[in-house]
Amino acid sequence: MSNQAVANRYAVALFQLAQSKGTLEKTGEELEIIQSVIKSTPELVKTINHPKVTLVTKKELVRKSFSGQVGADVLHTLLLLLERQRFSIVSDLSKAFTKLHHDLLNIADAMVYSAKPLTDEELKQVELVFAPKAGKSRLIATNKVDKELVGGVKIRIGDRIYDGSIKGQLNRLERNLLAGNR
Rank of each mutant, 00 (worst) to 15 (best):
S65I: 12
A108Q: 09
Q85E: 13
R138T: 05
L78Q: 09
S137Q: 14
S88Y: 06
A134K: 06
K64S: 14
Q69C: 03
T142A: 07
T77V: 11
K154D: 09
F130A: 02
K136D: 12
R63P: 08
K116M: 07
I89E: 05
N106D: 12
V112H: 03
E122T: 04
V150M: 15
V150A: 08
I48D: 04
L104M: 01
K58Y: 10
N106F: 01
G152M: 07
F87D: 07
V70Y: 05
T142N: 09
P117K: 15
V56Y: 03
T57M: 10
D103F: 09
D92W: 04
E121I: 11
K52A: 14
P117F: 09
G135C: 10
L80V: 11
R84Q: 13
P117T: 13
K59P: 00
E83M: 02
K52N: 08
V150E: 04
H102L: 08
S114T: 12
S65V: 15
G151R: 12
S88E: 11
L81D: 00
A141N: 01
K147A: 13
V56A: 12
L105P: 06
L61G: 00
D146W: 05
K52P: 00
A115K: 01
V53K: 03
R156Q: 14
G151V: 13
L118I: 00
K46E: 14
D73N: 15
N49K: 15
K147D: 14
R63H: 14
S65Y: 08
V56S: 11
N49Q: 11
T77E: 01
E127C: 01
M111N: 13
L75K: 03
P117S: 14
L81T: 05
E60K: 15
V145S: 02
D103V: 05
H76W: 06
T142F: 03
F87E: 07
K154C: 08
E148R: 13
I107N: 03
I107L: 01
L81M: 10
V112G: 00
L78S: 08
S91T: 13
S94H: 05
R84G: 10
G68Y: 09
L82M: 06
V145Y: 06
F87Y: 13
E127L: 00
K99H: 06
H102M: 10
T54Y: 11
S114V: 07
K99V: 10
F87H: 04
I89D: 03
S67D: 15
L105V: 12
N143H: 12
K124H: 11
H101N: 15
L118G: 00
Y113F: 15
V145M: 05
A131T: 02
L104H: 00
V45D: 04
G68Q: 04
K147L: 09
T54M: 04
S94M: 08
E122R: 07
K133V: 11
K154W: 04
E148H: 10
I89K: 12
R86Y: 06
E83N: 13
S91K: 13
V129D: 01
P132Y: 03
L80K: 06
V150P: 08
Q69W: 10
P132L: 02
A141D: 00
L128H: 06
Q125P: 01
T54C: 00
E43V: 14
T47R: 02
G68H: 10
P42F: 08
L75S: 03
V62C: 01
G152H: 08
P117R: 09
M111C: 10
T57Q: 14
A96V: 01
H101V: 08
L75C: 05
L82C: 08
I140K: 14
M111A: 11
A96W: 02
